[in-house]
């Protein structure tokens, strides 16, 4: 019984869960944004050569 209760660990309030979710979503959007940005910059800088293999 005691072990079962210990496994509960930290219990977040509804507000804290909402904030964690908001942070996760914000981070996902930022990462997706950076992926798009780096893709766009690569294409602009290298042009079609981005796809050619070095020999």
């Amino acid at each position: 019984m005691a072990a079962k209760q210990k496994r509960k660990g930290i219990v977040l309030s509804a507000e804290q869960r909402r904030r964690r979710r908001a942070r996760s979503i914000a981070l996902a959007l930022v990462l997706a944004g950076f992926a798009i940005l780096f893709y766009a910059v690569t294409i602009v800088k290298l042009g079609p050569q981005a796809l050619s293999h070095p020999t």
Binding site: A2, V11, R23
Partner: peptide, 23 residues
């Protein structure tokens, strides 16, 4: 021991910031 005794109250934790706080 009660259930509330083993589970630490999350309110006591700092660092639970909103996105607006990082902004």
């Amino acid at each position: 021991m009660s259930a509330t005794g083993t589970a630490r109250p999350a309110e006591a934790l700092s660092g639970f910031a909103d996105v607006a706080d990082y902004v």
